[in-house]
Design a binder for these strands. Structure first.
Lengths: 330, 330
DNA sequence: TTTAGCACTCATATATTGACAATGCTAACA
DNA sequence: TGTTAGCATTGTCAATATATGAGTGCTAAA
């Protein structure tokens, strides 16, 4: 455990480094803590032994280590009110009452990304556990149909179906009716099974072109559980000095394009979770701050990605502000 | 105009540089053209005078200039058949008959991006001139509705509407019926006007909560004309040596995130258009190859973005292959 | 018109240097 | 026992020097 002065020292170093991106020297601190630089150095070297600080080279100033940030986030960080200026910027969106939840979130995160120079990620809806509440099929022309599925939580998915062979409108209608009967109330990610084991045997009996129809609907429905991801402000984040080398940027851009890695961001408990450096799947210099939300029956995850060296208190305040304001009747 | 040997020389230099990314020396060429390096140098310096070649520094080999690439593309480039291996990779997608046009294009472009190390952009549908063919409204709960619009060309757009005040189901039904009557057949980008000047006055007379309803529908419909953009393989492109400096990558990533610039890619004539270096809005090292397509009544633009130093013949062959195969009954 | 030969130029890589910014350590001090 | 002054030490950074090699331009001869 750290004593009072050590805690203060760590706090100062983290916050100074976050601001300036330069290693913090003992000399710079002695004014603030009212003691000589030598004393600071003694304390610094203790914090280094503990693994909370690091040097970039033997005679450099100190920089918070991953463990240092973690300690700062867990024990030192004080909750902070959003400052007036930032609040004002978000207010226009909060007050725009015609905005649906999704748009409110996306737009807020766009602004937050600009304010913080972090990449904002909005992970859609996790509609896997939505239940089908209505299926509708609209014919476009001879060979093309549109299947529309609406879930109980208000998500809509649609897909165009192409049916090469000639299939009678009646057969289509029968199939849709059957599907409507059998899969309403089913969770989206269960629909595939129900189609295969319950619907298929029945339409095989009663519908002529059953195979063509079954295949078309099967692929349509099993595609539905997909998630949506939006990402804004990659550029903002990449301007940070920790990413001023081409290979690092390439690596991070690649990871952003990797569906697997981005999808994993979703797994988390409620509230705000912070993953620092090696705790992320991105890069040792990266921190991910993510928050699950649930409002209006919809749920999803929003996340901010950026350098470890970020303004944790501000980021938390912003996310909480977004969450607060989505409760109030969006 | 270039003589035969000069044309050959330019062709060799372009193609060699495309392959190796290194300035081409006179010595490397003399074997191919059966003459000494000094002769080649004479010809090279002529091509440099003409502005078709450049040196990276005074004693370096030659590199095609922007004008050189342009000349190559306009006069030297020979149409090339897709090689068997590449064709095979695309075949699986072409043969997947359950794929709709949109998915066929997106998936093909993903593969093309990997094969060429270029960024693939699919610019959606330009559905502005689609006509509304059906409007449907599905209630989710007291305050939320889903409006679904289907166009004659088979696009589906949907939007959640929130209606804060209490509005009777009957009023909603009346409004929807009216909308259905009045806007079917209207182009998507005209719907706003029709709503304002034709629908609004009528519902103002007959529907109680007309303002709330009108506003909800108005914002819903006017949002519909939006376009979709998908982009894959940024990472592939950024691995190219011309982008091995952090600032250049940042700049290009920024441009990719700039809606204005990306949208502009759409403006082009039919066929394949090639924009080299300063002709693009991206960077002097960048080339954009884009192609408008029209099939099934849908139209859109696909584009490949990468370094000027790209395999133009291969890229063209790939795009043409995609276009060919979308005609055959997707 | 082509070519061999040579001087020249520049990129790239590596080493050298001095100024500077911090540190660690030690010994003295309160 | 905790704090501090002073100094040697160690590294970064930027500027400068040095060597090497690849490739050119030019000239004179074939």
């Amino acid at each position: 455990m750290l004593n009072d002065r050590q805690t203060k020292l760590l706090k100062i170093i983290v916050e100074d480094y976050v601001k300036t991106a330069r290693p913090v020297s003992s000399k710079a601190i002695c004014d603030i803590l009212n003691c000589s630089s030598a004393t600071i150095r003694n304390e610094m070297s203790y914090l280094e032994e503990t693994g909370l600080l690091e040097k970039t080279h033997i005679s450099s100033g100190r920089v918070p280590s991953e463990k240092g940030y973690r300690y700062y986030v867990d024990h030192i960080l004080e909750p902070r009110e959003l400052n007036g200026e930032d609040m004002l910027k978000l207010q226009t969106i909060v007050n725009n009452s015609s905005l649906m939840l999704d748009d409110y979130i996306t737009k807020s995160m766009e602004i937050v990304s600009e304010m913080t120079n972090l990449t904002a990620i909005v992970l859609g809806k996790s509609s896997k556990d939505n239940c089908v509440s209505k299926v509708e099929v609209v014919p476009i022309n001879e060979h093309n149909l549109i299947a529309i599925v609406i879930t109980d939580k208000g998500h809509v998915e649609h897909k165009n179906l192409t049916i090469k062979e000639n299939v009678s409108i009646n057969d289509i209608k029968q199939t849709v009716d059957l599907i409507n009967k059998m899969i309403i109330g089913t969770q989206l990610n269960e629909v595939g099974k129900v189609l295969e084991y319950e619907v298929k045997p029945i339409i095989a009996k009663y519908v002529k072109q059953h195979e063509v129809l079954y295949n078309a609907f099967y692929t349509a429905f099993t595609d539905f559980a997909k998630e949506s991801v939006t990402m804004t402000g990659r550029k903002n984040m990449l301007m940070q000095p920790e990413f001023n080398n081409a290979d690092k940027i390439r690596d991070i851009i690649s990871k952003f394009e990797d569906k697997e890695i981005v999808d994993k961001i979703e797994e988390n408990d409620n509230g705000i979770n912070i993953y620092i450096g090696s705790e992320t799947e991105f890069d040792d210099d990266v921190t991910i701050v993510k928050m699950k939300y649930e409002a209006n029956g919809e749920e999803g995850t929003i996340a901010l990605v950026g350098p470890k060296r970020m303004e944790y208190d501000k980021v938390i305040a912003l996310l909480e502000y977004i969450k607060e304001n989505m409760k109030e009747g969006k």
